[in-house]
Design a protein around this nucleic acid. Structure first.
Lengths: 225, 225
DNA sequence: ACGTGTCAAGTGCTGAACAATTGAGCAGTC
DNA sequence: GACTGCTCAATTGTTCAGCACTTGACACGT
């Protein structure tokens, strides 16, 4: 099981990436326990390496460590969702207000993200749609030109995505939010930042409500057995 | 009766805490290389444990990893300072605007922090003064009632403190900023949030200018040899 | 049902080993 | 002398085996 590629990144990081991807795609749903030995064996690495990887992911908030009981995929509570959306409002709105037309690279990436999103919606691929949706919003943060904010935001979006993928698997209508992103993009390019900020605030509010509601329903179903 | 509340935290976390403290206190100045073997020996733990600890600290931004060359204490560049202060403005201002009088616990901690700060200034203990100063600001974030924001902010403050301690060792006058904190506290308790927000914006701006200037001078001296 | 004791499984950590990479010193060549 | 390439010790990256300790489940006796 040799990786033919010239690995400039450490094995521990690679393991973390693999697990991260599985978590974010919903392959490892919240609550799943990860045993060190079996994980190490299945990935062909040592226990210590797995340990380093889980260390990384637990600091990212994707895994939860309990002493002597190992790690398991974190659960996204309603409170978590509220926190994350509060941060999103706090960051995305100043971000679009700081948008300058000379950030051509950001705009082009936004366009790509938007198109990917719309294509995914057309093809009824909700997992991919969610990924592009959140990528679009992550790109907005770029307008603040602050790497620390970007990586913080990305971390939060990861947690959120973990929850959303589960939800959107069972709800094929993402809430008629399709045209919103295009409108945001148009307002941005037109320089109507204040209006754009308002729209985003509205969008975030709707998105949160929808997610919260669905999560509430699921929790109800869960407890009813 | 649980008198043995001792090792509830893992050794790796303890090692991380020790190193973190040394870095933040300036015992390990930026650029210092940390060798795994000697660190492990001096702390009486194994190499693997040190590795986990350095993993944590590098994710916190206090250590920098370069492949096969080990870790070293991170350098705070002018760009880093600019980023951190941008975040501070972005978070502290909404935080004080969100302050509600019913957060009695936060207010009492703020008061304690303020008094500790003033006492440290009186005693000309600048390292402690910096710690209380930054603790005061960290407490402001509590008004947002968001654990993720708190821990993110605390992380950034850690990075900043690393730089400030070095600076303030050699500059005994913290810039006549002494009365500002008290004023901020008074405005907060009086409910004059808008005015308080303005003052904080001003204070952050001054603080950044001062730090930037001193760091610039130091960089100049450094390069002149 | 209710403690309680036992036990396998799994984590936390150690110490030793080996492979891979780096940087420095050293040689040789032009 | 500057450049190139070589060797080599030091250090990191990773693996492995093993032991102490915690935990949860199961079985036991009352």
């Amino acid at each position: 099981m040799e990786l033919a590629e010239i690995t400039r990144i450490s094995v521990a990081d690679q393991v973390a990436s693999i697990l991260r991807q599985r978590i974010l795609n919903g392959e490892l749903p919240p609550g799943t326990a990860l045993q060190e030995i079996s994980t190490a064996a299945s990935l062909g690495v040592s226990r210590n390496t797995v340990r380093e990887a889980t260390r990384i992911l637990s600091l990212e908030g994707l895994l939860k460590r309990s002493a002597h009981r190992g790690v398991s995929v974190a659960h996204l509570s309603l409170k978590d969702v509220a926190e994350i959306y509060q941060v999103r409002r706090l960051l995305e709105i100043p971000a679009v207000l700081a948008a300058k037309p000379d950030s051509t690279e950001v705009f082009s990436e936004l366009r790509g993200s938007l198109e990917g999103y719309e294509r995914a919606v057309d093809e009824v691929d909700w997992v991919r749609a969610v990924r592009f949706d959140l990528q679009f919003h992550t790109l907005l943060i770029r307008f603040l030109r602050n790497r620390r904010l970007e990586s913080f935001y990305q971390k939060l979006i990861g947690e959120l995505r973990m929850g959303m993928v589960l939800v959107d698997r069972k709800h094929d209508d993402p809430g008629g939010l399709v045209p919103v992103h295009r409108r945001i993009y148009e307002l941005l390019t037109a320089g109507e930042l204040a209006e754009c900020a308002r729209l985003i605030a509205q969008h975030l509010h709707d998105s949160e409500s929808r997610l919260t509601q669905i999560m509430g329903q699921q929790a109800l179903q869960e407890s009813r057995k």
